[in-house]
Amino acid sequence: MVSPIIIAQVIEFECGGLAISLSGSHPAMDGFLDFKFLFEWANVCRIGSPVEEINFLSFDLSNIFPTRDILGVFKLTYHPVIEKDIIVKRFVIREAAMSKLRKKCVDESDGGLTFQPSRVEIITALLWRALICISTTIHGYVRPSLMDFPLNLRSKTSLPQVHNSMGNFRIDVPIKFIPEENKMELHNFIILIRDTVNKVVASCAKASPDEIVSTLVNIYNVSVRSPEWGGNDEVDKVLCSSMCMFPLHDTDFGLGKPALLFFGMKDTQMLWLHDTNIHSEVGVQVDLKESYMQLFECDANL
């Protein structure tokens, strides 16, 4: 049986509200495309939308990245752990809190930052550090941590024809916290995140399609799927997916813009960042094991 590429479910409530759920096949669609698909679908459905304002998706990604047997070069050394007791909570980080955090990062005594960190860098660093502290409380010692940070490559390469392409064009950036090498100040996490992401972006910026594929394979084999990191039970794993700047709150089928967003796989510990309808704020959805969530909500730094 062939699985569908996209499943959409529309629920109409007695109060007149409407919920749209979308599930896409990840080999065919990445997170950016999920929301781009919804956004353009809404444009097509909305009565009165000028056709020139509809940005139809292209299907030329397979011409640039033709089918190849890359599974043969992946070293499948472990199977991901599926969590069963995931609790989901939603938070909003206000602009005033963001300003305080940004000032704290610059003023920290151990060097501080010499650049203005982005909202995503600050929040990701804050949440990741909290999870490492929680793990330390649970296990009694500081453990290595591997954060998987999916990155949309469409605007990160010299391939302009991919900017509006249907398909999966992301790379998962593995960011490693090593207790013996990395410090626990907030700005240390921001620097670690920025340096790792920038290194991957630089490797793809002027790369050919074959070189981009080689970068992806190398990242998976050295980090994500290696027995030292991805396959090591002594390493904590967390995913952080930022959907900030994606066209979430501008998606309008003619019934108004979204009032509530909800994401998730519900089988792994994960952080979801997204814009709210107040663009100076950032929404955060946290999917954690119950034991972690209990400590997360009591974290004094949060």
Rank of each mutant, 00 (worst) to 15 (best):
E121V: 02
E121C: 08
I122D: 09
I122A: 04
I123P: 01
I123S: 06
A125F: 08
L127A: 01
L127V: 06
R129S: 04
R129Y: 05
R129K: 08
R129A: 02
A130D: 00
A130Q: 12
L131G: 06
I132N: 06
I132A: 09
I132M: 05
I132E: 04
I132T: 11
I132P: 04
I132Q: 03
C133A: 11
C133F: 15
I134Y: 11
S135D: 14
T137L: 14
H139P: 01
H139K: 14
G140V: 03
G140F: 07
V142C: 15
V142G: 03
R143G: 02
P144D: 06
L146F: 06
M147C: 13
M147D: 06
D148N: 15
F149G: 04
L151W: 03
N152Q: 14
N152P: 10
N152R: 09
L153E: 08
L153K: 10
L153S: 07
S155V: 08
S155P: 05
K156Q: 15
K156I: 07
T157H: 01
S158L: 07
S158Y: 03
S158T: 13
L159C: 01
L159S: 11
P160A: 01
P160G: 07
Q161L: 07
Q161A: 11
V162S: 02
V162N: 01
V162L: 13
H163P: 00
H163F: 10
H163W: 02
N164I: 05
N164Q: 15
S165M: 04
G167E: 00
G167A: 02
N168W: 07
N168Q: 01
F169C: 01
F169A: 00
F169M: 01
R170F: 11
I171F: 06
I171H: 02
I171C: 08
